[in-house]
Amino acid sequence: MNNVIQIENNVTAKVKNFFRRTAGFFAPNDDKPVHPFKAIVYKEIADHVRSWRFIILVALIALTCFGTSFTALTGISKAVKTISNDEAFFFLKLFTVSDGNLPAFFVFIGFLGPLLGLGMGFDAINSEHNRGTLSRVLSQPIHRDYLINAKFVAALVVICLMLFVLGFLVMGIGLLAVGIPPSAEEFMRIVFFLLLSFVYVAFWLNLSIFFSVKFRQPATSALSGIAVWLFFTIFYPMIVNVVSRVLEPNMMSSQLYVTSYTWLIKGMGFIMPNQLFSEATTTLLVPTVRSITPLTMEQIMGTIPGPLPLGQSLLIVWPQVTGLFAATILCFVLSYVSFMRREIRSR
């Protein structure tokens, strides 16, 4: 009996300790010094949360969240009738269905995610420089990369929290409105989708941090970020379009030419981060998508149409995810190197 009580006490002590430590991360003990890196992260998070810019961005994205879930809910009744019973994944429709007035949730994230990333990073370094705080902070006993890493981490924490909160809110609304709980697989698909959106936003965040290191004026860095974004969403597809029309195979073209042509056009799309994102999200949220790249007749032959399991869907989007990761890391490395090399002078 005593033993049981003791074990119980141990367990409660451990649980308490765990909670104290978790709480300690968010509300540090006032008697103990915090690690300087954490101190910068705390400050940056506080700055983000307090800033009007962040509030506006959150409001914008929350609005689209509710707007899209509303349209999805109105559209879903129609969708339900057409869906046969064995085609489950009803819950995922919340994120993909639209009634035509508003684009679906995942399209919106693809559109607003860059804005969020760019908005949070475009003045990360240059505003510190212009305020004259950069040289003051760097003359404290911290490594120089603490600052840029902490800025990156803080923005990521904020973005991650926000995306998950909004995603789960949409799920909650759907749950209340429809009354059908998501299956475990659907839930995992949504979590992966949110993680993917997170990586996508992180890419744009890094790009804008890079510009904020490179350009002294926040306006210049914001504009260059937006320019890259517009280039990829509007102009680059046009270029791809022109190229594809010029090289279009005709009746006489060989089979080899046709295949290499499709691969070329596809490959040109692969360097667009938004293309990578939309392909990956579609595959994740619409389990019936079987392949992103063109399939040959032999590959299609003998397949049974039907949804893919989660693992297979993940395998399909793996190149896209890797590509997004690579682009994110590339941007981060660029900004890191140029920041470390920079000579810090006062204003």
């Binding site: 004259g132 705080t133 003051r136 003359s139 204003r347």
Partner: peptide, 10 residues
């Protein structure tokens, strides 16, 4: 302790 020229604060 270093006080830079034209120091800035948050």
């Amino acid at each position: 302790g270093y006080l830079p020229e034209d120091v800035g604060f948050y």
